[in-house]
Nucleic acid binder design. Structure first.
Lengths: 167, 167
DNA sequence: TTAAACTTTCAAAAATAATTGAAAGTTATT
DNA sequence: AATAACTTTCAATTATTTTTGAAAGTTTAA
């Protein structure tokens, strides 16, 4: 396999993976492209490489920047903007998990708390509901906290964690 | 908030959450419904509670069973089938992570290995590509193994893990 | 201030994914 | 063997999400 083919395969694969995780294909592809680029890439080049429209590129770059995993860069003497991706994988994982926690887990926890604390009658059905949602609340809360803790090690957290769990 | 409202809210929320994780809304809703039901539910009742068609119910129940998180149950003297969800959260998390690993992470690793081991010319661009994809391969492999290890504790693994990481 | 070079926005179009429902399939009962 | 009670399948429809592209917006330079 030669370089161009490999690069394309990587970008496509990452894009497909993205869709399975609720991230749109183009967003994941742009990120993939930037990840493996050794220098900042202009919007024009992104459009060109991925065969997408200007609007699409612009919107998805914005979304990636909102996630904090892609940055704008300005080159001296150049009018247009260039983009780079967060390339440090520890940092990338931390940012992604922070963002998902904020956007998805925290709001879900709020709902779980609400529904698990209703007053219920003395029926098996209602008791089971409260019991199960309470357990779910505890579980999700614990998992969320753990993720936080895990990524708190920061520098090489995954490696350190593996060590810790093994022994 | 009264029981019915709470139950509905829970089912809706879980459904919405599903979509953000690449699981379709109905599939997540059915799972939510079964999770909080204290007894097995017939397809008829699922259709009724979620206001969905027979085909939709059938297909999504099948998918949930493929994931190993919903089971069929037969009641004595009853012709039709009833369904229950895996209610043990440790077990549920283990099954979901096994399945996602098998379906998504393993195939991604295969591609990452392929593209990170190409022969490259002496260009900074190509070197960077191999370097970055290799790092990604290592990272994903490590994370996948860790998930496996984590869930291997099995009974109350999340609790045990929290203990382990804290100290 | 005007023009050129660029980016963003957003309504409409296209692509993708989910859902329906009726026909075909299956299994149990008479 | 025929019928009744149920489930599955899948082509067509509907709903949702993504993408386009041109107009509006912004910034820099002359």
């Amino acid at each position: 396999m030669e370089f161009k083919e490999a690069k394309n395969k990587f970008v496509q694969t990452w894009g497909a993976l993205g869709s399975q995780w609720g991230i749109n294909k183009t967003m994941a592809q742009i990120h993939a492209l930037l990840m493996v680029s050794n220098e900042a890439v202009s919007m024009e080049d992104i459009m060109d490489e991925l065969q997408i429209s200007r609007g699409n590129a612009s919107m998805n770059l914005r979304a990636l920047m909102d996630w904090g995993i892609v940055y704008k860069e300005y080159k001296a003497g150049e009018r247009r903007e260039f983009f780079t991706a967060e390339k440090d994988l520890d940092e990338l994982a931390v940012k992604i998990s922070r963002e998902r926690s904020k956007r998805e887990i925290k709001p879900a926890l709020k709902i779980l708390k609400e529904v698990s604390t209703i007053e219920v009658k003395d029926s098996a059905e209602e008791k089971h509901f409260v019991d199960q949602t309470s357990k779910l609340y505890d579980f999700v809360l614990k998992a969320d906290n753990m993720l936080d803790k895990m990524t708190e090690f920061n520098e090489n957290w995954l490696g350190k964690l593996v060590m810790k769990i093994m022994k």
